[in-house]
């Protein structure tokens, strides 16, 4: 197995995003403490949902006495984007067994999705070892961050002063630039950026994620098709680089 396909390679690739997610795990733990959640509840959330933004929304609503179904629906709405990730990345996991897929989709968080797409872009196959190494390492960092944040996060008096709150936009911007060679990249980015900002300022977060994404995807779909295959069956992947 080439070194880039091993579990160690997955762990190595997941160190930057894990370190980037760690402050958010710490923040989640701290917020959970502030909102009066038990350590067990906070840890259970990180271990079973494994999705930062939706967990933040969840604990925000817990304290407000909001109806249970509404909390669950909000978590679903914030995580709705994963349907797109799943549809896109699932095409490249055809070598995985059903159980491997079951685990892979559980671990499908934003950075793992983005790194997988980047791998496809670079024509490197997605192996289960690489994928599991990446995802499981992040998973444990996320849980550890939650616990440590819960216990000690109170000591961070001023997260803004050390820029913690702004790490995620910078990180995602870096990922975004990694896709700039992809078809229709600039029009897609401009459309979804403008739509996201308008939605953010009008209907508010987290709707800007869904609405902005739809705008960008619509622009890509409305672009003229290149080399449209008329009657040939379309392969179940987006090109010869697919090793699945």
């Amino acid at each position: 197995m080439p070194s880039s396909s091993s579990a160690w390679a997955g762990i190595r690739d997941s160190i930057p995003p894990s370190m980037s997610a760690l402050p958010f795990g710490l923040l989640f733990g701290t917020l959970a403490f502030d909102k009066g959640l038990s350590l067990a509840d906070a840890t259970l959330m990180s271990a079973t949902i494994f999705g930062g933004a939706s967990q933040m929304v969840g604990i925000e609503l817990f304290r407000g006495g909001v109806a249970a179904w509404l909390i669950v629906f909000s978590i679903f709405a914030v995580n709705f984007r994963h349907i797109l990730y799943s549809a896109s990345i699932g095409r490249h996991l055809s070598e995985f067994t059903f159980l491997q897929k079951a685990l892979a989709f559980f671990l499908l968080v934003d950075p793992l999705y983005a790194s997988s797409e980047l791998r496809i872009e670079r024509k490197t196959p997605i192996t289960f070892a690489w994928y599991a190494g990446y995802g499981i390492f992040m998973y444990f960092i996320w849980i550890a961050g939650t616990v440590v944040g819960y216990e000690f996060g109170r000591l961070i008096r001023n997260p803004e002063a050390i820029g913690i709150d702004f790490l995620l936009p910078i990180y995602f911007l870096g990922l975004l630039l990694g896709f700039r060679k992809r078809q229709h990249w600039l029009p897609v980015v401009l459309a979804s950026g403008v739509a996201a900002i308008i939605a953010y300022l009008t209907v508010g977060s987290p709707w800007h994620v869904g609405l902005g994404s739809i705008a960008g995807i619509l622009v890509a779909v409305l672009m003229p098709l290149e080399r449209e295959p008329q009657d040939d069956p379309v392969p179940a992947s987006d090109g010869p680089e697919d090793m699945g």
């Binding site: 984007r81 797109l84 990730y85 549809a87 896109s88 095409r91 934003d110 999705y113 983005a114 797409e117 702004f166 995620l168 936009p169 995602f172 911007l173 990922l175 975004l176 896709f179 992809r182 078809q183 229709h184 990249w185 897609v188 980015v189 459309a191 979804s192 950026g193 739509a195 996201a196 900002i197 953010y200 300022l201 977060s205 800007h208 994620v209 902005g212 994404s213 739809i214 705008a215 960008g216 995807i217 622009v219 890509a220 779909v221 672009m223 098709l225 379309v234 987006d238």
Partner: peptide, 21 residues
């Protein structure tokens, strides 16, 4: 297929965009 290939840039952009406002 074109739509799915546009997903990463479209979604990740929306996570960055609010940072501007």
């Amino acid at each position: 297929n074109v739509a799915l290939n546009a997903v990463p840039a479209a979604v990740i952009t929306t996570l960055v965009a609010p940072g501007f406002v």
